[in-house]
C-alpha cells in the first residue's frame, strides 16, 4: 500500500464519519443531563470519552492495516472503531445499551468488541497491550498472518503493563505495534508533569523495538509511519512504538470543560479535520463539491445509525445473567 489519493480520500471520510458520530453522541449525551448533571441519566448514560481531535490517528493507522490484523484499544475507542470499520449501527446500539448492540448492551462505549474486524477495547489503562501482543503470538504460533496493534494514550506508558509488555514484545520479536496517542493530557495531568521523557517513542531502544514520533496530528504522516511499522512487523523486523502527537479538543470526558488546558498548551488543540480537508482540496484530491457530498453521505449514514440505535429495543433483563461463562 502507499499513500494514494484513494487512501487519502478514505482517511478523510473516516475522520468525518468519526467526528459526525461523536457529534451526534454528544448531542444525545446531554439530553436529561442539563441543568443538573446526572451521570446515569438520559438516553446515553455513563461515561463518554469522545475522540474529537484524535481522528487522524485512527484513520492513519487503520488505513495501513489489513483485515487479519488485530486491534485492542482503550477507553476512547470511537475513532479507531470507526476507522477499523466496526459496524456503525451495532456500535451505536451498543453505546445506547440496546439489544442490537455489538455485545447486546453488556459492554457500552468503553468496551467495544467486534470480532468480525478483530477489534476490541477495554476501559482499563494499558490493559489492551498484553492481549494484542498475545494475539500476535497466537497468529505466529498458528502460522497465520496478522499483527497486533494496541492503541494507548501517552499517560498509559506509566503503567507497569507498558514496560512488561514492551519488553516481552522485544524479547520474543512479536509482530506488534504500540500506538501511543499523545494528546498531552492524562485526564487532567499534562505529559510534562507525569512523564520523565518528552518522547515515549525514545523508550523503544530499551525494548529492542523501533521508535517513531510523528508530530502535527497529520493523517498523511501517521499513515506513512504506520506503514513502516506494519512492514517491519510483517517482515520479522520486530515491534514498533509509534507515538503520535494528536489533539484532544474537548475534556477528558463529556462534562469536563477542560479549563486546565490554557495558554501555549491550547495551541496544540487544533482541529485537524478542516486542515486536512483544505489540503485535499488544494491538492485536487477532493473538490468543494465532492467533499460536501462525502460529508453529507457520511452524516446521513451516522444519522441512520443513531436512528437504528434509538429505535432498537432494550435488552431483556435476563440477558444480564447470560454470557458470564462460555458454555
Amino acid at each position: 500500500m502507499s499513500l494514494t489519493s484513494d487512501v487519502r480520500r478514505k482517511m478523510y471520510e473516516v475522520m468525518v464519519r468519526s467526528r459526525a458520530f461523536d457529534d451526534r453522541l454528544t448531542e444525545q449525551y446531554w439530553i436529561d443531563k442539563k441543568p443538573i448533571f446526572a451521570f446515569g441519566a438520559g438516553p446515553l448514560p455513563g461515561e463518554l470519552h469522545t475522540s474529537h481531535g484524535q481522528e487522524p490517528v485512527g484513520a492513519g493507522v487503520c488505513a495501513a492495516l489489513l483485515a487479519d490484523d488485530m486491534i485492542t484499544t482503550g477507553h476512547r475507542p470511537h475513532h479507531i472503531a470507526v476507522a477499523r470499520g466496526v459496524d456503525l449501527k451495532s456500535l451505536t446500539a451498543e453505546i445506547f445499551g440496546r439489544k442490537t448492540g455489538l455485545s447486546g448492551g453488556r459492554g457500552g462505549h468503553m468496551h467495544i468488541y467486534d470480532k468480525r474486524v478483530n477489534f476490541s477495547s477495554s476501559g482499563i489503562i494499558a490493559e489492551g497491550l498484553g492481549p494484542a501482543a498475545g494475539m500476535a503470538l497466537a497468529r505466529k504460533m498458528q502460522g497465520k498472518p496478522g499483527i497486533g496493534i494496541s492503541f494507548i494514550g501517552e499517560g498509559a506508558v506509566n503503567q507497569g503493563a507498558f514496560h512488561e509488555v514492551m519488553n516481552i514484545v522485544g524479547v520474543f520479536k512479536l509482530p506488534f505495534i504500540c500506538v501511543i496517542e499523545d494528546n498531552k493530557y492524562a485526564v487532567t495531568t499534562h505529559k510534562s508533569a507525569s512523564t520523565a521523557t518528552e518522547r515515549n517513542s525514545d523508550r523503544a531502544t530499551c525494548y529492542g523495538m523501533t521508535g517513531e514520533f510523528v508530530s502535527g496530528n497529520d493523517p498523511d504522516l501517521i499513515y506513512a509511519a504506520a506503514e513502516r511499522a506494519v512492514t517491519r512487523a510483517r517482515t520479522g523486523g520486530g515491534g514498533t512504538i509509534l507515538e503520535v502527537e494528536t489533539a484532544r479538543l474537548l475534556g477528558h470526558f463529556m462534562g469536563d470543560p477542560g479549563g486546565y488546558i490554557t495558554g501555549e498548551r491550547k495551541l496544540y488543540q487544533v482541529d485537524p479535520i478542516p486542515i486536512y480537508r483544505r489540503r485535499l482540496i488544494d491538492e485536487n484530491i477532493l473538490t468543494e463539491a465532492t467533499a460536501s457530498a462525502l460529508e453529507l453521505a457520511v452524516n446521513t449514514e451516522v444519522n441512520e445509525a443513531m436512528r437504528f440505535a434509538a429505535e432498537s429495543p432494550f435488552p431483556d433483563p435476563i440477558d444480564a445473567l447470560n454470557c458470564t461463562f462460555a458454555d
Partner: peptide, 26 residues
C-alpha cells in the same frame, strides 16, 4: 521452547498475553 515459553518476571504482561492468545483460538 516455542510451546513451553519462559517469560520474564512480568506477570501482568504475560497474563494479558495469554488472554489475547486465547481470544485468538489458543
Amino acid at each position: 521452547l516455542d510451546r513451553v515459553i519462559d517469560m520474564p518476571i512480568s506477570e501482568t504482561g504475560f497474563m494479558g498475553l495469554a488472554a489475547g492468545a486465547a481470544m485468538e483460538g489458543m
